[in-house]
Amino acid sequence: MTVNRRVFIAGLAAAGMAPAVSRAKSGMPGQLTLGEMQVMTLSDGHLTLPRSMLFAGLEPGAVDQILQARGVAAGAIHPPINVTLLRHAGRVVLFDAGSGPGFQSTAGQLTAALDTVGLAPDEVTHVVFTHCHPDHLWGVLDDFDDPLFPNAQYLMGEVEWEYWFDPNTASTISGDRASMAVGARRRLEAIEERLSRFGDGQEILPGVAAHASYGHTPGHMSFELRDGQKSALIGGDAIGNHHVSFAQPGWAIGTDQDVDLAAKTRFRLLDMLAHDQMQLIGYHLPNGGIGRVETAQNGYRFIPAN
């Protein structure tokens, strides 16, 4: 089934109808090299989120001022979805799996993006998860509800796994997120036999270390990539946008489950990234999501790589 779906996507590409890959050409945004590590981001499309989902409880005028200064248009927010692809030591590793066909119509384009860079889903050797929200986990299943990456090993933080695999989560999480919990458990059941769990600080693959960044979800993980003196942080949704969360890291973001802990995590990561000048790879950041963090007035700013 996977092969047939790939042939179908390839046909769309030939007709000029396939979704775009996030900057796959050398020298363009969306790529970096860390020693022997080759890293790029692939586009799974974008989300459409009402401002009330992100900024409820914040002063609208203050939010608008930040958004306008960063060129964000009025109305809904349209964050990009950047899935990180790592090629290293014979491994083909994805960090998160995108949205798949069951979430928003503007998302779920990862298979087409893989095809554009000459990869089939069965060539992916590992899928590493930051957390279990739909735009990160639901893409593990294809249009036919079969595993999209049939040869991959899956890796997830122990705390995140325990939370979303618990059947009680659907009844204890806030009501508007119950369907997310049900959907997460269904997909975790489908990949359970091929999934390994890890803790904070573990080197889960050569040169890839887990970095606890809780708050957005109970067990959210970021990942440090390091080869020699070069390093980068795959931040997932710990820093979920390039505007409010940089200018005012302490402000509550509505998509975070524990807003206070998430704000503390943001401050810590932003301070580390700015101080160490470590590159950041952000799941919902612009221009392919790769850039650096700089201090700015009382907050920070994101500087895309290109």
Rank of each mutant, 00 (worst) to 15 (best):
L47Y: 08
F246K: 06
V124S: 08
I77V: 09
F198E: 01
R266Q: 07
Q65W: 04
M40Q: 15
F144S: 14
A170Y: 04
H242L: 01
D143P: 01
T217C: 09
H126W: 07
A74K: 11
L94Q: 06
A14R: 15
G90A: 00
T2Y: 01
S213M: 12
V182M: 09
D271K: 06
L188R: 04
D115P: 00
R187K: 14
P121Y: 08
G207R: 06
H88A: 03
P249Q: 07
A210Q: 01
A210G: 05
G282T: 11
R5A: 06
A247D: 13
E193S: 15
I204V: 10
D200Q: 06
L42D: 07
F144M: 10
F95E: 01
V83S: 01
E203K: 03
K25I: 02
A212I: 03
R301C: 09
W251S: 12
H243R: 04
A69Q: 12
Q297G: 13
L205W: 05
V159S: 11
L114E: 05
G299I: 08
A20Q: 07
A262R: 10
V128M: 10
A56W: 05
L273P: 05
L86Q: 01
P60T: 09
V124C: 08
E36G: 11
G45E: 05
S174K: 11
P150Q: 03
V127C: 08
T130A: 15
D135I: 01
G71I: 03
H220Y: 10
T84K: 03
S179F: 03
D271F: 01
G35D: 05
F302H: 02
L280V: 13
V92W: 04
P101Q: 10
K230L: 11
T116P: 00
D237H: 15
P150A: 05
L12K: 09
P167V: 08
G289E: 10
H78G: 00
T255R: 12
N298F: 12
F267W: 15
D64R: 15
E193H: 11
L49C: 08
M180K: 09
Q297E: 15
A107Q: 07
R266V: 09
P167D: 09
S99I: 01
F55V: 12
D96K: 02
S22C: 11
T125H: 13
Q109P: 00
T33W: 07
S99A: 15
V182K: 14
F149L: 11
V92G: 01
M40T: 02
R194M: 03
S213D: 04
D237F: 12
